[in-house]
């Protein structure tokens, strides 16, 4: 583990929140409670997923972790969300969007922040 791991986890969380919020807006998610739910669910899942993803940098591990995050968030969106017709699809879309955007932006972010 290098000294940059806590920083990387913090950046991962920040960018996930920004990207998923943007995705939610584009997908017409409405209501402050739904956005609070989005925030809390990402605080719940992103840090452990990002930590484990750094400790096990293998594509299969990443796929497993992201799948778990999609299912957990989807289940909680279904249970706690307001007016969300397709909570699992939303969770899949939001997580896929933030993951792919993170991959695409990773070289640029590494250059800026490290």
């Amino acid at each position: 583990m290098d000294a940059g791991l806590p920083g990387r986890l913090a950046l991962s969380l920040l960018f996930t929140l920004v990207l998923e919020s943007g995705f939610a807006a584009a997908a017409h998610l409405r209501g402050r409670r739904n956005y609070l739910l989005l925030l809390l669910l990402n605080l719940l899942t992103n840090p452990p997923v990002a930590l484990l993803g750094n400790l096990f940098p293998h594509p299969a591990a990443h796929l497993l972790l992201e799948t778990a995050a999609v299912l957990v968030e989807g289940a909680l969106y279904a249970r706690l969300g307001e007016g969300m017709r397709r909570p699992y699809l939303f969770s899949l879309g939001a997580n896929a969007f933030s993951y792919l955007a993170g991959l695409a932006l990773s070289p640029l972010l590494s250059h800026i922040f490290f």
Binding site: M1, D2, A3, L5, P6, L9, R33, L36, L37, L40, L41, L43, L44, P47, P48, L51, L76, L80
Partner: peptide, 27 residues
């Protein structure tokens, strides 16, 4: 590095725990 890793794991666990509590409280 092991020491810093343990501290990082602790911080992640704390964030997860607080988030779970807030979810239970608010919702």
């Amino acid at each position: 590095g092991r020491t810093r890793l343990y501290l990082t794991v602790g911080a992640v666990a704390a964030v997860v725990a607080v988030s779970a509590v807030l979810l239970a409280v608010f919702f």
